[in-house]
Amino acid sequence: MKQGYYHLLAIAVVVVWGLTYISTKVLIQHGLHPHEIFFYRFLVAYAGIWLIAPRRLLANSWKEEGLLALAGFFGGSLYFYTENTALGMTQASNVAFLLCTAPLLTAFLSAAYYKEVRLGVHLLAGSVLALCGVGLIVFGGKEGLKVSPWGDLLTLSAAFSWACYSLVIRRLSHYPVSFITRKVFFYGLVTILPMFAIFPFRGNVGILSQPAVWMNLLFLALVASLVCFVAWNVALKKIGVMHTSNYIYLSPLVTLGASMLILGEVLTFTSAVGAACILCGVYWAEKKSGA
C-alpha cells in the first residue's frame, strides 16, 4: 500500500507538469524569453527550498558534488531551455509527442549503464504501445507531424536530457531528497547564466508586474518546481527510475482532460483509443518491469 502512495505521487506530479505548457506559453506571449522564464522560476524555487532543505552546503565528495551539478544541468537549465525554445520553433504537438520518448530513452540508458536493469519484451512493448497512444491523442484528427528540424531536435535533446537527469539522481539516492532538489535548483541557475552573455539580462519590471505574469511564474516556481521536483525525486528514490519515468506517458491525458473540462472539447474516437493505449501500455510496462 505504501508503494502505491509513491506511484500516486508520481502521477500527481505528471498531472501538474501537464499544465505547465499553458503557463509557459502565457509568459512567452507576454514577452519573457525561455532562459528568463527558467531563471525566475528556479530562483524563486531555490529561495523556497531553503525553508525545508538541510543546511549542509556540499556533498560527501567532489565527485558527488559534480553529479549534483550534472543533475542541475540535465534536469534544469538544459532541459527547460531546450523545451521552451522548441515551443517557439516547432508545433506544440511535436513537442508534446517527442518529450514522451523520455521513458524509452531512460530505459535504454538504464540498461546501458546499470547492468541489473534489463529491457524485457513486456517493458518495451508496453512503452511502444503507450507512445502510440500519445501519437493518437496528439495528432489524431490533425494534419499530423510536420518536421521542423531544429525545433524537433531541441525537443529530443530535452527528452534525452531528462533521461540523463533520472539516471544521475539514481546515483545520489543516499542523500535526502530536499538536499538533492536544492542543489539541482542551484546548479540549474548557475548553468543557465552563460545564456545571459548571449542574450543580456533585461529588467522586465513592466512585464513582471502584470498579474498574469507573476501568478504564472509563482505557479511554475512554487508548485511545478519546488513541490513537484521534491515529489518526483521521492518517487525516483522509492519506486525506481523505470517505474517513475513510465508515468510521463500520462501527460497527454492531462491535456486531453483539461481540454474537455475547460474548453468543452468533445472526446473523439481516436483520442479515446489513444487514451486506452496509454493506460494499457503504462500498466503493462509497470507490471512487467523489474527495474
Rank of each mutant, 00 (worst) to 15 (best):
A112C: 10
A112E: 05
A112I: 11
A112G: 06
A112S: 10
Y113W: 15
Y113C: 15
Y113H: 15
Y114S: 12
Y114C: 09
K115H: 12
K115G: 07
V117A: 14
V117F: 13
V117D: 14
V117K: 13
R118P: 13
R118V: 09
R118G: 07
R118L: 08
L119E: 10
L119F: 08
G120S: 13
G120P: 04
G120C: 07
G120E: 07
G120R: 05
H122A: 11
H122Y: 07
L123K: 04
L124I: 15
L124M: 15
L124H: 13
A125S: 15
A125F: 15
G126P: 04
G126F: 13
S127N: 10
V128G: 07
L129G: 08
L129S: 12
L129H: 11
L129D: 12
A130S: 07
L131C: 03
L131H: 03
L131V: 02
C132P: 04
C132M: 14
G133Q: 08
G133P: 03
G133F: 08
V134F: 13
G135S: 12
L136E: 09
L136N: 12
L136Y: 15
I137H: 07
V138E: 10
V138N: 05
F139I: 08
F139Q: 07
F139W: 13
G140C: 12
G140K: 11
G140H: 12
G141Y: 04
G141R: 02
G141M: 05
G141P: 02
G141T: 06
G141I: 09
E143D: 15
E143A: 13
G144T: 06
G144Q: 09
L145E: 06
K146R: 15
V147L: 14
S148E: 07
P149L: 02
P149V: 01
W150G: 04
W150K: 04
W150T: 05
G151M: 04
D152E: 04
D152P: 01
L154Y: 00
L154W: 00
T155D: 01
T155S: 00
T155H: 00
T155K: 00
T155I: 00
L156S: 03
L156R: 02
L156C: 02
S157E: 03
A158D: 01
A158L: 01
A158V: 02
A159M: 02
A159V: 01
A159H: 01
F160S: 03
F160Q: 03
S161A: 09
S161R: 04
W162D: 06
W162I: 08
A163D: 13
C164M: 15
C164E: 14
Y165G: 07
Y165A: 06
S166G: 06
S166L: 03
L167P: 03
L167D: 03
L167S: 05
V168W: 06
V168A: 12
I169M: 14
I169E: 11
